[in-house]
């Protein structure tokens, strides 16, 4: 398991270097990454590209804390 799930905020040292990748992520106008996720309700895997096959997708990223 890597250090993605840090125990303290803000993550320091090497963990802090990986905290933000926003400006490395794809730009507006390019094609979004296709990634596998899990549907919380069903437990089924799904691919992001299947969501935007027929329409737009508005994705909010977050957690409860």
């Amino acid at each position: 398991m890597d250090d993605y799930n840090y125990a303290h905020f803000p993550p320091t040292g090497e963990k802090a270097d990986k905290f933000e990748r926003f400006f490395e992520a794809p730009n507006v106008g390019t094609i979004a990454p296709d990634v596998a996720l899990e549907d919380l309700e069903t437990g089924d895997p799904l691919q992001l590209k299947d969501l935007w096959k027929s329409g737009a997708v508005l994705m909010e990223f977050g957690s409860y804390s």
């Binding site: 933000e20 979004a32 990454p33 508005l58 994705m59 990223f61 977050g62």
Partner: peptide
């Protein structure tokens, strides 16, 4: 893949 910040929003 999308930038690792805690509360982003993307419109695809």
């Amino acid at each position: 893949a999308f930038g690792t910040l805690p509360n982003m929003t993307w419109l695809i």
